[in-house]
Design a protein around this nucleic acid. Structure first.
Lengths: 256, 256
DNA sequence: CCTTATGTTTCGGAAGCCGAAACTTTATTT
DNA sequence: AAATAAAGTTTCGGCTTCCGAAACATAAGG
């Protein structure tokens, strides 16, 4: 999967695809995986055998496969060593406490999707499905549009011309002119708003985060149900830039 | 590496070994990995290339490798789908709150090591290095000795004769007779104690957990600094069996 | 009991991996 | 700044080892 570049090891790539597959569905069976990925049954069998022997997957009683304890262990390790998350989680926690809504920090990955690098859940009963490490489309999210607005113009043009931008809700921006106008607006105002553009009822506000060289490399956002968010929007818009500046300050003073 | 069985895919096994290596040291460089694992530099290069393309590792500025966001994502997913942890974490949290010490649940893996399947940290400033998914030797831990004491006699004999049991502290039990006497004592009393046998200053109490068929499949423990633990030992010994029974009850009523 | 689905094993052919060595880039020393 | 060393990247041929069809075993369902 991904691009088949010349150094890519097919066997390993397939194995990782199987692991991803197991992770996504939680309870995959051999045949399911084989069909989903279009990989020969025998091959999947051997991959699962190897993954299991190394603790990366485990069989349940019902002979389905789950992620193994190795994955849990490494996941914790990865979080612990994830410099950005460790640096900003305190700030995000304060932000979440202040408004009682979930806060996120995200950046654009190679495919111009938003990658969540830090997140604090609100205590609220309605939980978002977002997680650290997850990615989502840029054109229909507050952080995504915020990052697109401050992207290198050449790359932005490439992104916009690549498309398409599937409609998710009534308010999704789906055409290039709409998006260009929106990004211009975001640059002028300094913040981005996702008004139920990816999911009905979900409202988000995001601002860019710059590094010490003045480059926008990330965005932070607050997300919650529209009904609750709308009343607080102006306070949030006032607070978010302070958060971004605080993150910049933390980066500057961080060791290394 | 592990055992080389006939269905094992060497390439995948090596790739997982590389991933483990990156996870352990946090900041491995290509050459380091190659030397640590004894795998050809070129091969490691290709593995890292593939792992990186799939988001399993990422390069730092200093061209060292860290675990990638995919690992974080899967780790969280794995924890969420980990039935045992989800089932018992509430009980362990109560236990930890009651005594203000870290609680663990563990079982024996294929190599008769203790695998931590659930854990709640105490609020105390001294944090233990244990983590869910981690394994540790059985002969010098409270949970481990507890599980050995209730192991199938045949397998136990095999384990004891395999040895060796390296000394970790002054109180480590290192000989088979010592261990056999200890296990007998554990069976009689119903609980196991680790009196600084694996780490100086670390004191643990553990009891077995049975399933609905009466088989011991896990152990739960409380761990903390000896100085603090010794005063509360008798209360802990009184409380732990209740915890074990509660876990049995939860298992019985759990869906599936 | 027969049928269908799923998982396991075998085996030959060929794809893809391995690894030495050459080359490039980055770091360290003189 | 030049020279040396170390780390990383690329090439290429040989041969391991992986793939996949098909047969076999086992479990589930009618």
């Amino acid at each position: 999967m991904t691009k088949k570049n010349r150094y890519m090891l097919d066997t390993v790539s397939n194995a990782l695809a199987v692991l991803d597959c197991v992770a996504e569905s939680g309870h995959s069976t051999l045949t399911q995986i084989s069909e989903t990925l279009g990989i020969n049954k025998t091959v999947v069998f051997r991959i699962l055998y190897t993954l299991e022997a190394n603790g990366y997957v485990a069989k349940t009683e019902t002979s389905a496969y789950t992620l193994g304890h190795r994955v849990i262990l490494h996941g914790q390790q990865a979080l612990k060593h994830n410099a950005i998350h460790q640096r900003v989680k305190g700030v995000l926690r304060d932000l979440t406490t202040q408004f009682n809504e979930s806060s996120h920090m995200g950046l654009l990955d190679d495919s111009a999707n938003v990658l969540i690098v830090s997140k604090i859940d609100a205590a609220a009963t309605i939980q978002m499905s977002s997680q650290i490490g997850k990615t989502m489309p840029a054109y229909c999210s507050a952080m995504g549009k915020c990052l697109l607005a401050h992207m290198d113009p050449g790359k932005l043009k490439e992104y916009l011309s690549a498309g398409p931008f599937p409609r998710k809700t009534l308010t999704t921006l789906t055409t290039v002119p709409e998006l260009e106008r929106e990004l211009q607006l975001i640059r002028e105002r300094g913040y981005a708003i996702d008004n139920e553009e990816s999911e009905e009822g979900l409202f988000c506000v995001a601002v860019p985060v710059t590094n010490s060289r003045g480059q926008v490399y990330a965005a932070v956002s607050l997300s919650g149900p529209s009904t609750r968010m709308i009343n607080k929007t102006s306070q949030i818009i006032a607070q978010l830039p302070l958060v971004a500046r605080e993150i910049l300050r933390l980066e500057a003073e961080s060791p290394e």
